[in-house]
Design a protein around this nucleic acid. Structure first.
Lengths: 261, 261
DNA sequence: GTCGGGAGCG
DNA sequence: CGCTCCCGAC
């Protein structure tokens, strides 16, 4: 079972890329982020034509997540359960989370807030969101379940995961509080499936559009597939498919694929 | 000598179309309207590579005219001579006129104001602009000169030149004051070179993007090549090349080509 | 319907 | 840099 994650930066604009890639790689599940469209405008027919179901949680202009799957997703959950929240506003104004069960695996697809600059209001929101997400996991799942949490985390786990750690030091994507939040999530019971198989530095899943960052390979590894303990033995490999980033008018992210036996 | 006119609705967006068309038709001169870019941003290198010089009079966002030519244009004039104007503001805030001499022919390229709705402020400006243009011709040229005035006039000369004259009656593009203004220009000493050779109705150079007007051939002939008396005997034919309007992401106008022996 | 531009986001 | 929306123009 192959599960992929891809921040497509508009599913409308990237539709030809996503279709082409699905046909070439035939993953079983693909988690999309930044679809940037409402559920009504999601191009589900195009995906249906090549054999993919779609469960979507979109909004206009910003964010939006979706799960594509060869077999239909069950028990789809969109966003946090707002009823339990008190002051904190994690309602569906920002569509950043969708979860569903596919072939016995609970797939949780997240688009973690970017955080803008360290110390900014958006940064604080990012940390609060990660905290709220940990609570979501704790309250909804058990450690014995087969869970895959994947998506755009906007966090580079350690210094191997950014092109120039010295230049990035302390800034958003690598700051200690963000990395700690990710670590806490892992401590609950998740493993970065990419790092199970690859210890080397300089593997990236995102390159800023600006100043030729892709050409210079000035990227970061911020898209992850985390797997629960029960899936570790099934993890064959997790790899980053750089190809789509080379295509015409690409997303700034490229897919990450986790292969589970 | 072939002289063409084409409202391209953004030379930036239409560049591939214009290049393709120049290579296919090899006109000697092309007058472009609505280039919608400043002179600095005009893609002159792309035209130079296929053997065309460019004289431009652009502005950002709106309007903008240019003359492409195989041999270099001489005595380029941009806009009306403002110094002579009193109250009337026909300064270069709206780039609608460029003139130059090519191979002994004075080529005057105009983008006449659209006029919005009859009676509107923009309609009044259109009529004033046409009046000012007649003065420009009178004061700058002699009837013995070889002059070609071409461009987007936003005027359909008579009822043969609109798809549904009854529906259009009295509205902008066909209203009597506009047609009269065009007639007065002709009376100074110009002939509609298209009508020298073709008397039939339903030849159009523009079709609104909306409501499938092109598919229904619901267009108008508002792009013209007017020639001075001395050129009448050299006029072989003037024809409308509908092809580019069929291409992907076309301009709403298509080129008109005047062939001069 | 198809543009360019500006704002907001990343 | 690129994507979305809103705006005005035509």
């Amino acid at each position: 079972m192959n599960i992929a994650t891809w921040n497509v930066n508009s599913v409308t604009v990237r539709l030809p890329h996503v279709l082409r890639w699905l046909i070439e790689r035939t993953p079983d599940v693909v988690c999309l982020q930044e679809i940037k469209c409402t559920d009504e405008r999601f191009p589900r027919e195009a995906f249906a034509e090549i054999g993919y179901h779609a469960a979507t949680h979109g909004q206009r202009t910003y964010n939006g997540v979706a799960i594509l799957s060869r077999t239909e997703a069950r028990d789809v959950v969109r966003g946090f359960d707002v009823s339990g929240d008190d002051e904190d506003d994690f309602s569906d104004v920002q569509a950043r989370l969708i979860a569903a069960t596919i072939e016995g695996v609970r797939v949780v697809n997240v688009y973690v807030p970017n955080g803008a600059r360290v110390g900014s209001e958006k940064y604080v929101y990012k940390l609060r969101w990660l905290e709220r997400f940990k609570t979501f996991i704790e309250t909804n799942y058990g450690r014995d379940e087969n869970i895959v949490v994947c998506g755009d985390f906007n966090i580079a786990p350690d210094d191997r995961d950014v092109h120039n750690p010295a230049a990035w030091a302390g800034s958003v994507l690598v700051s200690e509080p963000e990395r700690e939040a990710l670590d806490e999530l892992k401590e609950w019971g998740f493993t970065d499936s990419f790092r199970l198989h690859e210890k080397q530095a300089e593997y990236f899943s995102w390159w800023d559009y600006r100043s030729g960052d892709f050409r210079r390979n000035a990227g970061a590894r911020i898209d992850h597939v985390l797997i629960s303990d029960g899936l570790i033995s099934r993890s064959v490999k997790t790899w980053i498919d750089v190809e789509p980033r080379r295509w015409e008018r690409p997303s700034d992210h490229t897919p990450v694929i986790a292969e589970l036996a």
